[in-house]
């Protein structure tokens, strides 16, 4: 079932998001690898549409929060309000209690609010006034972020960026895709007509089978030389963490599964590598981020 269902999901999404097969596949891999996704791009290239389409096709409940600078943690997590009739506090769940949360323009919010969200993402639960409220399972956050040089943004600290498994860019569509987009149906209309391709239970199943994809010693060798390279090359302030390595393997497994294989090959690692490392590594010199991730892949021989 895995092969068929992932193909179907990709087909559905690619019908809405035109000409972005690679980004779409990465986004799907990220979710199947149980990772949160950060999309960094300019407004209007289809970040929200992608998140929305994913949620719908995967059959997930969907909430969208537009982040602003005056937002408080309670606006996301929820709040305890005194109920005079019952003479007690009752918890009003915030938008985070959903299966897929789209956190739009996360870097517009204050660091305090950002932290509240990221903490919840990490813990898989919300703790307010000593009470813990577990989040849904599956639970994903797709955050979008404007390029950091725009005015009025609070860039996410590196430690928090690490909570996102992947950061992807969508970019402008190419000539043909854009033309098809311009003459095609209204995207919002299309979204409304979309139906779920799988159920949340099936998604959990997909996640489980992705985690069982065969990982050979030879492949682990490759991942290790990649990690070692980032630590030894001296181009970066810090090398990749073991968590990044784990993420790389999870994502590569998901990618392999979506590609219809039950074992991981170096190409899978190479496909997900830039999206895993770009937001985790800080180059010493100002390098175009997309390029240096690929440069690492070019420098490191496959053992």
């Amino acid at each position: 079932m895995t092969q068929g269902s992932t193909d179907r999901i990709l087909q559905t999404i690619n019908a809405v998001i035109l000409g972005k097969q690679h980004a779409v596949k990465l986004a799907l891999s990220c979710l199947i690898a149980r990772g949160h996704l950060l999309i960094e791009d300019l407004p209007g290239v289809g970040k929200t549409t992608l998140a929305h389409t994913l949620a719908t096709t995967l059959g997930l409940r969907f909430q969208r929060v537009q982040f602003t600078s005056d937002m408080l943690p309670a606006d996301i997590l929820g709040v305890s309000i005194y109920d005079p009739e019952k003479h007690q506090f009752s918890f009003h769940r915030g938008p985070i209690f959903t299966q897929l949360l789209l956190a739009d323009e996360i870097n517009r919010a204050s660091p305090r609010t950002q932290s509240a969200l990221l903490e919840a993402m990490e813990e898989q639960q919300v703790t307010i006034e000593g009470e813990s409220y577990p989040l849904d399972d599956p639970f994903f956050v797709i955050a979008t972020q404007n390029p950091t040089h725009q005015i009025g943004t609070f860039p996410l600290p590196e430690s928090q960026l690490d909570r996102f498994l992947m950061r992807i860019q969508i970019g402008y569509p190419d000539h043909h895709a854009e033309r098809a987009l311009l003459i095609g149906e209204d995207r919002r209309q299309m979204l409304k007509q979309l139906t779920a391709d799988i159920t949340p239970d099936e998604l959990l199943e997909l996640q489980l089978s992705a985690s069982k994809i065969t990982l050979s010693d030879a492949l682990i060798d490759y991942v290790q030389v990649l990690l070692a390279y980032t630590r030894q090359t001296g181009q970066f302030y810090n090398g990749l963490s073991p968590r990044a390595g784990l993420g790389l393997i999870q994502a590569a497994r998901a990618w392999a599964m979506i590609s219809g294989r039950d074992f991981v090959i170096p190409e899978d690692v190479q496909a997900v590598f830039p999206s895993i490392v770009q937001h985790r590594l800080q180059a010493r010199e100002h390098l175009q981020s997309a390029d240096w991730a690929i440069e690492i892949l070019q420098q490191v021989a496959i053992p």
């Binding site: 190409e267 070019q298 021989a301």
Partner: peptide
């Protein structure tokens, strides 16, 4: 074959 080239590629 480039050293960094995957077998499938």
């Amino acid at each position: 074959r480039q050293p960094n080239e995957g077998p499938e590629d």
